[in-house]
């Protein structure tokens, strides 16, 4: 009896929607989350031991993996900043996008964001270069602002400082090493600047295109005839494989399915016979309503594209 009573209460709860009836989709098992958390802890230890690039990995994991204790957005920005400080171009790219999105109290920092992305591209990040090329097109940022950001980035990197907390307003808790300068970063920036000067391209945006996109284009133009034939053949092979599979199916059909489809195709039921029999009188009865609906449709059509009742009636009569 107690069981009956409990069932009654339970059914009432389900009915009233107080208990969700198993509709929650579970994407990751607890074990998977636990495993991710362990991996995360290992990287965290590395970072704490002073491996700066580990901060970038840590932030990326925190952003995208199903952790038991996911870090806050401020924490992620903090880690990206630490990693970017050491000249990690991926961290600069992601940090730039955080700023551009205005996340983590970073609204209205478009210029800073562009400087970070420009820094990443100067340090050789092709994705950042690509994004910088597309940002004016996709987000409507002016090319002049991009140019300005690019010059700021180049100057900062030449001084060996990918991140300057007095300028970048680092998240709370970040202790910028005083006078932090990376020789590696400044060397890279100088090489970039030298190459740019030698290229003769005046605008940074144009030079970036040359690096990020046109470089790949140049590769495609230099594809050898042999390579072109190989690519073409690969496409043909792919198509041929599909055609062969279809041919196989046609030669060895699934007879049951074939028969079923044939039946569907050729079906002529008694209902269809009856409908055919009453066709004339039915359409006479429906004519007024069909004409009315056609008039409504024609109201929204160009005078040259009107449809007529007679045309529609012919089509209706053609139906199986």
């Amino acid at each position: 009896m107690r069981y009956n009573f409990l069932m009654l209460v339970l059914s009432m709860l389900v009915y009233s929607g107080m208990l969700p009836a198993g509709q929650v989709l579970k994407q990751y098992t607890a074990k998977e989350r636990q495993l991710e958390q362990v991996k995360f802890s290992v990287i965290e230890e590395l970072a704490e031991e002073g491996v700066n690039s580990a901060y970038g990995v840590l932030a990326k994991m925190g952003e995208s993996r199903p952790l038991i204790n996911p870090p806050s957005q401020d924490q992620l920005i903090h880690w990206y900043t630490l990693s970017a400080q050491s000249g990690n171009s991926s961290a600069l790219l992601w940090l730039g996008h955080y700023f551009l999105h205005g996340e983590g109290n970073n609204a209205g920092r478009e210029h800073d964001a562009l400087v970070l992305l420009a820094s990443a591209s100067i340090l050789g990040n092709v994705d950042a270069a690509n994004d910088l090329i597309l940002i004016p097109k996709v987000l409507g940022v002016s090319y002049a602002r991009l140019e300005e950001a690019f010059h700021d980035a180049l100057q900062r990197l030449s001084n060996g400082q990918p991140i300057d907390c007095s300028w970048a307003r680092c998240s709370p808790g970040l202790s910028q090493q005083p006078g932090f300068v990376s020789d590696k970063v400044s060397a890279k920036a100088k090489i970039f600047h030298e190459n740019w000067r030698q290229s003769g391209v005046v605008k940074a945006y144009q030079y970036l295109k040359l690096l990020g996109v046109e470089e790949l284009l140049a590769q495609s133009n230099s594809t050898s005839p042999k390579e072109k034939i190989r690519i073409k053949n690969a496409g043909k092979l792919k198509k041929n494989a599909r055609l062969a599979r279809e041919k196989r199916l046609a030669e060895n059909p699934d007879w049951e399915m074939g028969a079923y489809l044939d039946r569907l195709k050729n079906r002529k039921s008694s209902a269809q016979d009856a409908l055919r029999h009453y066709e004339g009188q039915d359409f006479a009865q429906l004519e007024k309503d069909i004409r009315h609906t056609i008039n409504l449709i024609n109201f929204h059509r160009d005078p040259d594209a009107q449809i007529s009742y007679e045309e529609i009636l012919q089509l209706m009569k053609k139906a199986p």
Binding site: L134, P136, G140, L216, T223, I231, K232, G235, K238, K239
Partner: peptide, 20 residues
Amino acid sequence: MQEVWQAQGIARPKTIVVAN
């Protein structure tokens, strides 16, 4: 679309980007 591009021998397919 790679299947079509490859069959046409287009190694680096391009897209016309219309902006601003």
